[in-house]
Computed example of a mutant assay.
Amino acid sequence: MNIKKDFKQIPLSVLDLAVILEGHSPADSFKNSLHLAQRVEALGFERFWLAEHHNMASIASSATSVLIGHIAGGTSVIRVGSGGIMLPNHAPLIVAEQFGTLASLYPGRIDLGLGRAPGTDQETARALHRNDQAAFRFRDTVRELQLYLSEDNIDGVVRAIPGEGLDIPIWILGSSTDSAYLAAALGLPYAFASHFAPQQLHQALKIYRDNFVPSDQLKRSYAIACVNVIAAESTEKAKLIATSMEMIFLGILTNSRRPLQPPDENFTLSPEAKAAMKQFMTYSFVGDSHEVNASLTQFVEETQVDELMVVSHIYQHTDRLMSYEILKNVQNNI
């Protein structure tokens, strides 16, 4: 019997990209990320994930496993992981060893989320020595990685030390239906990137649930949806803060990427850009506590996701901390 999911009851988590702010350095981003992780841990958030991207002026989380170690080392109970590691960029053995090391240092706290995209442009993908066919072998490389992390590989010719036999949850990430089929077939938890690719969310969730095959890792399907949330004391302030997010999405659309800009009350979009942005930002919830509560309650009712993961592109660190605090207080009816 399926129990209806409710926003007030499901876990809340954070996706962080170690966003670089205009006028600041990556070192500042790392300090802010750690401070945010410590704050959301105290608030009771479930997990804190970091994402692999390359050659982006606004994102400092390129060395994802290194940054995961930094965040895990500065926190104590929150789960820390990748949202995700772009597996085709790496040899599965290297990933197994890196995350085996992390799981050995921080037992019971490390998640390994895997994606099949390069996390960058084609030129940078080539600079990463990425095989053009690697994405088509994603299922095989996931299986190879599972083997290295398995106790059954103890007699293998190639072994991941550390890594072998450790309980490191593997997640499949996606922004299309392809990943939903794979996560279901392998019996793995699934996280969908609806914060920037909302169009196929409902279809992907249905495919995943309808086709899920229980595994040793997971007996029942488990799905996360990632959304953008910017909460503030007033709707007006939230909308102003959100202009930074709008500018970063506009930069993606126009291939004019730069560090996250301060809020700009004079920022406007052309009708064409506004229409395109609407596609990107379908699941972007901006407002005061009442509006965010209503929007997320409806979202969870419609999707029945098991967990919400939130990303917040906010320029002022204090405003970002406040946004997550408001979000958690809304969930707790405070």
Rank of each mutant, 00 (worst) to 15 (best):
D210S: 15
Y190I: 13
V80C: 03
E291F: 01
V286P: 00
N89V: 08
N55Y: 11
V330E: 04
E301M: 09
L67V: 04
V157E: 10
A60E: 07
K239E: 15
M247H: 02
G287F: 02
Q304W: 08
G74Q: 06
N211A: 13
N266G: 08
H317P: 01
H90L: 13
V286F: 08
S176A: 14
N131F: 04
I161T: 13
T120N: 09
D167E: 13
V77G: 02
M322G: 02
D288Y: 01
A117M: 08
G73L: 08
L308Y: 03
A57V: 00
G108D: 06
H24D: 13
D288F: 05
F136H: 11
L12M: 10
A160Q: 04
L105R: 03
I94Y: 09
Y106C: 04
H129L: 14
R39P: 02
V158H: 11
D264W: 01
Y315N: 03
T64L: 10
D264K: 00
Y283C: 05
V77F: 04
G163I: 13
T297I: 09
S323F: 02
L240Q: 06
N32L: 05
L218I: 09
R130L: 11
A42E: 15
A184E: 05
T318H: 09
A276D: 05
T64E: 10
P262F: 09
Y222T: 09
Y283S: 05
M1G: 13
A91S: 14
F299P: 03
E272R: 06
A18E: 15
M245C: 13
G44Q: 09
P11K: 03
C226G: 11
Q98K: 10
I326W: 03
R139V: 12
S61Q: 03
Q122G: 04
A183M: 12
E164H: 03
A117G: 11
R116W: 06
L308I: 09
